[in-house]
């Protein structure tokens, strides 16, 4: 601190408390709504304190499903979202780390051409090429499959660039030393490079998992069967009906369940998360 403020740190505390209030209030309200019964909310008589229907609502949401438009229980959607997010995160890390390895540690014809081919994909998010991609996925008979959900989202260069940059900072001496010890490319990759990349992989995993979990437009287009929908597409269908028919406690419980895994990851792995965010964006 440079100087003493007149009222100590009262002012920053007030501003930050208001900020936290703005950020947390919608989430708190969703939780409160998920513990009250449908009629109370529909009347607009909702109280700001948690009600008594917590177990009832969450049991219904997870294992029965809302009685309205979506008949699938939310546990199914959570499972689909989990599979999709894991496939995207693990798949992207796996294919990126080996291609970055090839680009950094080998000399071969078309090396730079291949690098640029991958690099350019950074520029276009899936949203702008959504229908042509849809057509191709349909032609490959991948609609309503986990492969169809995840493969097009793996096609981007962020992770490759990150690993490439990291590999460039790994001292050459390490490679020389392992070669003297008789290590080939596989051995060097497995015993030296992978252990060194662990933190980077973890940070990347956190970001990619959240990104995959929160995908919306793509799963909306390519899943038609109810048992293939993710939690993000499922929740929209729940408020599709008219106001009077929407079961708000179930919708809000679904919202809470939908944000639980990524929020948990952000809070529990804050350091990795911040690191991953800053590194993938710069």
């Amino acid at each position: 601190m440079v100087e003493r403020q007149k009222f100590g740190n009262l002012f920053p505390h007030i501003v930050l408390c208001i900020g936290v209030l703005i950020v947390a209030f919608p989430i708190y309200l969703a939780f409160v709504a998920s513990t009250q019964d449908t009629a109370t909310i529909a009347n607009g008589q909702m109280s700001l304190l948690p009600g008594s229907h917590f177990l009832e609502t969450y049991y219904k949401t997870l294992f029965v499903g809302s009685s309205g438009t979506t008949r699938e229980p939310v546990s199914m959607m959570l499972f689909n979202s989990l599979v999709m997010a894991m496939l995207i995160a693990v798949g992207k890390i796996a294919i990126s780390i080996i291609s970055a390895y090839a680009i950094v540690y080998f000399r071969f014809p078309f090396r730079m051409a291949i690098f640029w081919l991958i690099f350019i994909t950074l520029m276009l998010p899936v949203e702008v090429r959504i229908y042509p991609t849809y057509k191709i996925v349909a032609q490959l008979h991948l609609l309503d499959t986990y492969a169809g959900l995840s493969l097009p989202l793996i096609a981007s260069a962020t992770a490759t660039l990150l690993f490439r940059q990291f590999f460039m900072t790994v001292p050459d001496e390490l490679l020389e030393a392992s070669r003297i010890d008789g290590a080939g490319p596989f051995r060097f990759f497995w015993d030296t490079l992978l252990p060194l990349s662990r933190t980077n992989m973890a940070a990347l995993f956190v970001i990619l998992f959240i990104l995959g979990w929160n995908q919306y437009l793509w799963p909306l287009l390519i899943t038609t069967r109810d048992d293939m929908q993710t939690i993000q597409t499922g929740i929209r269908k729940m408020i599709a009906a008219s106001d009077a028919l929407t079961e708000w406690p179930v919708v809000m419980a679904t919202a809470i369940l939908a944000m639980l895994p990524p929020v948990f990851i952000v809070v529990a792995m804050q350091k990795l998360f911040v690191r991953g965010l800053v590194e993938t964006e710069k």
């Binding site: 930050l16 900020g19 936290v20 950020v23 947390a24 919608p26 989430i27 309200l29 969703a30 709504a33 909310i41 529909a42 009347n43 607009g44 909702m46 959240i210 979990w213 929160n214 919306y216 993000q232 597409t233 929740i235 929209r236 408020i239 106001d243 708000w248 919708v251 809000m252 919202a255 939908a258 944000m259 990524p262 929020v263 990851i265 952000v266 809070v267 804050q270 998360f273 911040v274 965010l277």
Partner: peptide, 25 residues
């Protein structure tokens, strides 16, 4: 507390706000 909402998916954000600002309830 402030970095929380990053993890909330856009459709869920929509649901939260539509609930708070739904004209009838």
């Amino acid at each position: 507390f402030l970095i929380w909402p990053y993890a909330v998916a856009p459709p869920v954000v929509g649901v939260l706000w539509v609930f708070m600002l739904n004209p009838s309830l």
